[in-house]
Design a protein around this nucleic acid. Sequence first.
DNA 1: GCTAATTTGATAATGATTATCAACTTCAAA
DNA 2: TTTGAAGTTGATAATCATTATCAAATTAGC
Lengths: 144, 144
Amino acid sequence: MLTEKDKRSFQDYLTQKGLKLSGPRMKILEVVLQGTKHLTANEIYGNVQKRYAGIGYATIYRTLRLLCEAGLCMELKCEDGVCRYEHAGDDAHHDHLICTKCGRYVEVVDPEIERLQERLFKVNGFFPQRHRLELYGICRKCKG
Amino acid sequence: MLTEKDKRSFQDYLTQKGLKLSGPRMKILEVVLQGTKHLTANEIYGNVQKRYAGIGYATIYRTLRLLCEAGLCMELKCEDGVCRYEHAGDDAHHDHLICTKCGRYVEVVDPEIERLQERLFKVNGFFPQRHRLELYGICRKCKG
DNA sequence: GCTAATTTGATAATGATTATCAACTTCAAA
DNA sequence: TTTGAAGTTGATAATCATTATCAAATTAGC
């Protein structure tokens, strides 16, 4: 799942910003894009360690920020106070359905809801930037 | 805005839990219910200090938790990683429109959106518990 | 008023994230 | 290919909101 396109995309972003593509950055990009979605920085640190020992915490955080800025990742500020990261891929915006028992994240979109949100912005005289919708419940598996 | 009903409500909650209604708890209840909505614990601490010096940080946090449990307050986990509190009053559930320039919070509800959210839960086999919807944009005043 | 149970304030601890800094890499030009 | 200025790294200290700890002070039912 680590395409040449992604690599180039990261490379381009760095160059454009006058930054450099280092070994650690490349390794982190690889592990993040090949791993599961919705991992914490700590979990990503663990995954990176497994394959490439020696990369520090700070570099994980720094690189995750770069990946977000480059549009390759998205940061979710979760209710437990910890950030989770999902690789953005080419998929459009989506919201999340979150199981409060097992912590599973399901991605959902409802175009109708999106439309009504735009209306709420307009009605209240706000220029829309972004939104966050999280639905908390218990998934079928946990409900038993 | 601190009604007898609120006092009784807090008192009842404490009694029912085998807890006590102390001076500090009463003072914090008063300041919180009379103050603005969407304040941080830190801001509430400041407001309490102004009127009743000597109450410690820990007591603010502890009492805010009790007020939430008693249904007199609600905690909002905000994107900046800080919690804000709003007194629940009798008003129903609502979502928030947040100005990214001035930080203003506007409370909004759209019954249609609420309905569609329920449908999303159902379609995905989730038992619904609660949700969080935050709309970020720039308010008319800041837009100029 | 007495007393057991609860609460308080001060402060240390926690846990995620960010800042610091000397040593190490990168990369474009020579 | 060597070089050196600029950027990066890992270790670790710092930060910041929130919680835990604990001895001293308060509360409420008798």
